Computed example of a mutant assay.
Amino acid sequence: TLTLIGLVLGSLLSSIVVIETVFTFPGLGRLLVDAIYARDYPLIQGTMLFVAFIYVVVNLLVDLVYPLLDPRVAA
């Protein structure tokens, strides 16, 4: 269950682009879309790097919480 929570949080990061574009919310996804339309490559790279960093941090936190919830996983 915890693994699925981590994966769902990762997919939520990818869906913010669609949600913010459709509903015209200002945010990270809208910033990325505007940067793509303006061909602002450094901003695109920075935004993608930030999203990848958040994805890695979420997966790291899931891996660190596992031994607390299930003692059989402890190394």
Rank of each mutant, 00 (worst) to 15 (best):
D40Y: 04
D34F: 06
A52N: 10
L12R: 01
Y37M: 08
L4Y: 13
A38C: 05
D40V: 08
L61E: 05
V51H: 01
P67S: 04
L31D: 08
G6S: 11
D63G: 06
S11M: 14
V8R: 11
G29D: 08
A52P: 03
T3N: 13
D63E: 13
V51L: 15
T21D: 03
L7A: 12
L69I: 14
L68K: 03
V33C: 05
D34P: 01
R72A: 13
Y41E: 05
Y37F: 12
G10Y: 04
Y37T: 10
L9E: 12
V18Y: 07
L2N: 09
A52Q: 04
P71G: 02
L64T: 02
I19D: 05
F25R: 09
V51Q: 02
V51T: 14
L31G: 00
M48G: 06
G46V: 03
L32Y: 07
G27S: 02
P67K: 02
S15G: 07
F25I: 12
L7Y: 14
V22P: 00
Q45K: 14
S15I: 04
G27C: 06
L7H: 11
V51E: 03
T3H: 11
V62H: 01
P42Y: 08
N59W: 02
P71N: 10
V57D: 08
L4I: 09
D34E: 15
L12N: 05
F50V: 13
I19Q: 02
E20W: 00
V58L: 14
V18K: 00
R39G: 09
A52S: 13
L31E: 07
E20T: 00
V17K: 02
V65W: 11
A52W: 05
I44Y: 03
R72M: 10
L43P: 13
V22A: 02
G6H: 06
I36G: 12
A35P: 07
I19S: 07
V17D: 04
P26V: 08
L9P: 09
L28W: 06
L68F: 14
T3G: 11
I44R: 06
V22H: 02
I44K: 08
I36Q: 14
L69D: 05
P42S: 06
G10E: 08
D63K: 12
L12M: 15
L2E: 07
D70F: 13
S11W: 11
I5E: 06
V65S: 07
R39P: 03
L2P: 11
L28P: 00
D70I: 11
G29N: 01
D70C: 12
Y37L: 09
L9F: 13
V56Y: 14
F53C: 09
R30S: 12
I5C: 05
T24K: 05
A74S: 12
I36W: 01
T21Q: 10
A74W: 07
V17C: 01
I44F: 04
I36F: 04
G46K: 08
I16S: 10
M48F: 06
Y41T: 13
L43V: 15
G27I: 04
P42K: 07
